[in-house]
């Protein structure tokens, strides 16, 4: 068995960890990440912090404007701003 088949770099592990936060890591990627997590302290620390960030984002239920909503707001405001300048 080739080493690269199961072992991934720290950067790749971080990338998979990021994708996992959005449910976009494949099953095979999750297996490779799991193996890396079992022995790499740095990846484990990154993963814990990443999971915590996802957790607080979900808990806070923050919201923001969609692009079309912001564009509408911007247009309205710029029309008014032009009158003041």
């Amino acid at each position: 068995m080739k080493k690269s088949f199961l072992f991934i770099s720290c950067e790749e592990a971080h990338h998979i960890c990021d994708k996992r936060q959005y449910g976009e890591a494949t099953g095979w990627e999750r297996v490779k990440l799991g193996i890396r997590l079992s022995w790499c302290r740095i990846t484990r620390a990154y993963s814990n912090r990443n999971n915590k960030l996802t957790e607080v984002m979900q808990k806070a239920e923050v919201d923001c404007l969609k692009n079309d909503e912001r564009d509408k707001l911007k247009k309205q405001f710029e029309e008014e701003l032009a009158k003041h300048q």
Binding site: D63, C64, R70, L73, F77, H84
Partner: peptide, 19 residues
Amino acid sequence: DPNNWIKLYSDYLFNYTIT
């Protein structure tokens, strides 16, 4: 600097309001 208000504060104010 009202020219930057939408860019800097629209999302923050929106989140503040919708909650």
